[in-house]
Amino acid sequence: MGVTESPPRARRRGPDAPFADQYRAWLRGMILIRRFEEKAGEAYALGQVGGFCHLYIGQEAVAVGTLAAIRPDDYVVSAYREHGQALARGIASRAVMAELYGKATGCSHGKGGSMHLFDASLHFMGGHAIVGSQIPLGTGFAFAARYRGTDQVSLTYMGEAAANIGAFHESLNIAGLWKLPVVYVIENNGYGMGTAVKRAAAITELYQRAASYAMPGVEVDGQDVVAVKQATDDAVGRARRGEGPSLLEIRTFRYMGHSMSDAASGTYRSKEELESSRQRDPIVLLETRMRELGMLDDTGLGAIEADVAAEVADAVKFAEESPEPAPDQLWTDVYAPEAR
């Protein structure tokens, strides 16, 4: 209970180490999220994306590392800062971008938007915009898996500020009581809007709260994708073996403002603090590790960047050219279709 796990060091191996393909996939996954989000920010500034939009830049290793640890039939649910998880889960960047544009080809057919990305076929059960509301839902997916006797696991994300809401307590208590196969991931990026953790939580070591719910709580370095993957593997394995839920507090940083309407620094956090958080960039960390291991050189990195740039450009073009939802779509999907 309440163990702090230090991030594992990568073992020094040759270029043909068995991780090479994985690392490359994770690096590409993180770069895709970063470039996608940069474009989403530009599209927002141009008025192509409306409403609220919360970028994931700085947190890429959390989505990529955690989602590398689960199976396609497992369940994923998140809050409103979920572009990164949607992409890392495998929703096509075209469908995510088109959803930000509100187009009919979006992953929620233009009816969800940035905060409500869904893909039932990938068991991506949404972006939810009421803080903490996804926590009972993720617990419910785990309940359903148990009810049906499958070994599926529910991966339930939340920001650290959501750990202060009642739904967090009620869910973790029940999950601990019933030993449900759920992995709760707190993405601790230090702030809920402009409120620092220490101004919102009576204890700032949030993983320690797991002790109240009879589950392990693990603090994880969220800038190190390898550490994230490993910690999630452990928690997912536990859940899959029927040993119950876990709480991962993954420490990370939000490089941008809370949403598109606030500056990254200046009021509630200083420029210096922001600059120092950027020193451990998740993409640079993995890139460096891969170079050291001989898995990556400039050409290799250039190829990934070019590939990602093409994918994001294609996603934007697709979103721009996609049709708006037909006017009659206003009235569909309120209730289930009649005939049964």
């Binding site: 369940y75 059960m125 509301s133 617990t139 997916f141 359903a144 739904a167 208590n173 029940i174």
Partner: peptide, 20 residues
């Protein structure tokens, strides 16, 4: 369930979202 209307209702909603 424990006395946790928000929690167990949300668990029910989640279970329904995946077909129960």
């Amino acid at each position: 369930t424990p006395i946790a209307e928000l929690g167990f209702t949300g668990i029910g909603v989640g279970a329904a979202m995946v077909g129960l």
